[in-house]
Design a protein around this nucleic acid. Structure first.
Lengths: 289, 289
DNA sequence: CTTGAGAAG
DNA sequence: CTTCCCAAG
């Protein structure tokens, strides 16, 4: 059923060494399932898959998407039908699953789910979250809502970070953060300085979060410093994908030890190329823990 | 451009003798145009085509649908976008075009348009209308609205009939009347006795309209008495089309002389078969006038 | 089951 | 440009 390195070693009682995690905004899991998502899922080496923009109630999903064979699946749909929705598929059973992050405004909005996974040989464990940070719109109330979410979610990130430090465990928050951090994180940064997703306040929020002394690690950037992208989202409009006019807004944010344990990172642009089943591409990282 | 018998004779100054008229509910002209409607239009021998459920503003239609080469096209969209909408394509130029039938409630609802066409050698002429009678829903206000429409439209039919009788001209009202008249006009009449479209009051309204002494002629039935159907609409749900579980709700209703001049009638079930571009099939009649 | 509008992305 | 919802058919 599961024959990744991670699973084989786990089954053999060997301390786990390699964990592969993928994050992808599927832009409607039902639509993705009608295109190439299922072959992609069947072929992936990931042990954990974080999904965003599922846009369906679990009851609306066919079995192979709601509860795929070989995976433990958890869903946090939005109260509003057809909106947002995050999920996590894990090859191994979590010890806990939590929806939301203690926010009255956002816990039913289908924007955050996290699971605790056992790490072989340790009691501390690993928390993996799937985040879909709200899309904003500059100069509107929707941007204010995005800032409110960011403020509340930052408190949760601080709590995760503190707990990991205290227990010797790890935390990893994957997802669509809807913010490009630096100029290298989007093709047309000059034209987007006033666009939601690249506003100074948003960028500063990430800079603060990623403060090297105490903060989180942007895993893909830490493995690929000084390069353009790799982008993970391209608008469906125009020829954005063909011209690689993209944004890097899908991140793996890891606590320090886990970030340092990241071995490889890749944006699976090819995975969406043959038949493009989302406007985002999967972002896959291998961790040696 | 136009090489039907009707057009060739007209171009040669010969009194027109054969007129072919088609009526079809296209269930969204834009969608039909993306499927097989255009090849059908290119191949039809019709001189006049009456369309219902166009569901588009003229500005939203591509040129080949809004104003096709070789036709004079007239559109009566509904005030509410994406709803109803009737049109007429005519190979020859009308002498008049009228939208609605003098109803405050319904003239902007995209449910009736009529054109006056010259009939070679006579001053009287022919009025052809394209009608999309509202869909009802038994025991609801929508059924009351359907009855209101029927009552108002009956007055217009009476006026058309009276004028034809007085001037020696003809009138023909084609379209989706949304009522099956007799048991032979729908496959499952027993199960639909309480369904809008086959209610006793609706059937009686048609019976009165078709009173042989003074009324209108149901042209297809007059040419094909005593047969089941031919149906012209099949639900998209289930296997209705494959099983021919249909309704005959698309009619040519003609003033007496014109009804008597009908030579052939056919429901073009095959036209929608290769690629089904509507839930209705074209109903085509040839008139020798 | 299908269309088109509409909001969101 | 694409997703899904919804009302209508």
């Amino acid at each position: 059923m599961c024959d990744t390195t991670f699973c084989r070693r786990a089954a053999a009682g060997i301390v786990r060494r390699v964990l592969t995690v993928t994050s992808v905004n599927v832009n409607g899991l039902r639509a993705a399932g009608r295109k190439g998502f299922l072959p992609w899922l069947a072929a992936t080496a990931a042990d954990v898959v974080c999904l965003q923009e599922v846009r369906a109630e679990p009851d609306q999903l066919p079995d192979e998407l709601r509860d795929p064979q070989g995976w433990h699946a958890y869903h946090a749909p939005a109260a509003t039908k057809g909106r947002a929705g995050v999920s996590i598929y894990s090859r191994t059973a979590p010890t806990a699953v939590r929806v939301g992050f203690g926010s009255a405004e956002y816990d039913a909005s289908g924007r955050y789910i996290e699971v605790d996974l056992p790490v072989g040989g340790t009691a501390a464990g690993l928390t993996v979250g799937s985040l879909y940070l709200p899309t904003g719109e500059a100069e509107t109330e929707r941007q204010d809502a995005k800032y409110r979410f960011m403020a509340e979610f930052r408190a949760h990130l601080d709590a995760l970070h503190e707990r990991a430090a205290r227990t010797g465990g790890h935390a990893l928050v994957c997802g669509d953060w809807n913010i490009a951090h630096q100029e290298a994180d989007l093709r047309n940064w000059r034209g987007n300085r006033k666009s939601s997703g690249f506003l100074p306040e948003e960028r500063a929020w990430l800079t603060d979060l990623l403060d090297p002394a105490t903060g989180w690690t942007d895993v893909v950037r830490s493995l690929h410093p000084g390069v353009e992208g790799p982008y993970s989202w391209w608008s469906f409009r125009g020829k954005a994908f063909d011209n690689d006019t993209g944004w890097r807004i899908d991140y793996h944010m890891a606590t320090p030890k886990l970030g340092a344990a990241a071995a490889t990172a890749a944006v699976e642009r090819a995975a969406t190329y043959a038949e493009r089943w989302s406007d985002h591409a999967p972002v896959t990282v291998t961790y040696t823990i």
